[in-house]
Design a protein around this nucleic acid. Structure first.
Lengths: 205, 205
DNA sequence: AATCTCGGCAAACAGTTGTTTACTGAATGA
DNA sequence: TCATTCAGTAAACAACTGTTTGCCGAGATT
């Protein structure tokens, strides 16, 4: 890649980083072009060399935020071991991810039902893909013997929804309060265990 | 109540209605004082006779939105009947509520993780109260024999989270697509059934 | 009937906003 | 080496923002 392209990407990164930082205490709809460029050390007009819109910046942030999440999902699903260990590792990885990328997680939680249609749809589409991926992984587990496609899908959606809730809960726990985080983790584990129990007895009825 | 107070309340309602309408396609942080007063047919300065802030308006909307939700929770929890009928009625009532108060539900979903701290905290506090209420109701059911307080609490939080997810899912279903709404309802029922199964076998282990 | 209260208004304040324009100068490629 | 490309700039545009001020006139109170 040429020097030119590298410099442009650097500016783009500066804009996205500045945007992500500003979005920690405001919504995308209220984020201004001048505000972002000012924080990124760039002139207002320069913004349009990279993004058509603010929503455009938002979509780019969605892609970036969910790329790291994809790795998370993969690493959980590929794991071997009993249900109990899988649950523990899931919750651990969620907590770790929220700690390492709080701004990304906050951004996703905030804009999932936010005011920018394009961003909402981008997040929804990606969460759908997650559900599909999780569903495919669930199908391979021996507990899912005899489960129909629809049943697997609803279970996958239950899991994805739970992951989102748990991530948001970790986010709301004060940074300097490890006890609160531990409570969130304990609750999430119990809930996953309860769902796991329901799974095992689903085909009894 | 005097004529004076009645007129003031009417203006207040006009502001809140206008705000709620505008918040269907934008966030509270991007909602302006002039914007609201213009939509409510009032002069900008008049706003400050009713609210200190925009966040103040937001908190008022939270109270209004959750008042109707409280009735919903009560009517579900007071119901008699088997687990299956209770699940059906729960999902029905959620759907009905979303259909009847879409703006309120959308507002709550949007500002639950939104940019205004006061509003976020108001919603979180109220959802906590819901969880407490649900937990108390769960304790009375025979299925919960032998359950500790922490276990009941985690189950209640699981239910509340599920209700919120389901309401958001109904909201995202296109208005003119009854099939999509039916799918959401079917999924929600199955998920509740699965949780119910897990509950019944919780004390086996 | 006279006084007081107070919800709503017009005007002014000093900023801010998104977007377009014509431009500069460094990286690129012949 | 010289022409071209193009990321970033400064300036200008009209329109918008939150909030305060003094004022009015209709309800409330005596």
């Amino acid at each position: 890649m040429g020097v030119r392209q590298a410099q442009k990407q650097q500016s783009r990164r500066a804009l996205m980083d500045a945007g992500l930082r500003l979005l920690e205490d405001q919504n995308l709809t209220s984020l201004g072009v001048r505000e972002v460029t000012r924080a990124a050390g760039m002139s207002p007009a320069g913004f349009y060399r990279h993004f058509r819109d603010m929503a455009d910046l938002g979509v780019a942030l969605v892609e970036e935020s969910l790329a790291s999440l994809h790795l998370l999902v993969r690493s959980v699903l590929e794991g071997r071991g009993g249900a109990e260990e899988l649950i523990d590792r899931t919750v651990e990885i969620i907590e770790l991810h929220v700690r390492e990328h709080p701004a990304h997680v906050r951004f996703l939680a905030r804009e999932r039902h936010g005011g920018a249609r394009q961003v909402r749809e981008a997040i929804a589409a990606e969460l759908d893909r997650f559900a599909e991926e999780v569903g495919a992984a669930l199908a391979l587990q021996s507990v899912s013997a005899g489960w129909g496609e629809g049943e697997l899908r609803m279970l996958a959606e239950l899991y994805v929804g739970h992951v989102v809730s748990t991530a948001a809960a970790f986010l709301e726990a004060p940074a300097g309060d490890p006890e609160a985080a531990r409570r969130v983790a304990a609750t999430a584990r119990m809930q996953l265990r309860l769902v796991s129990l329901g799974r095992r007895h689903w085909k009894d009825a």
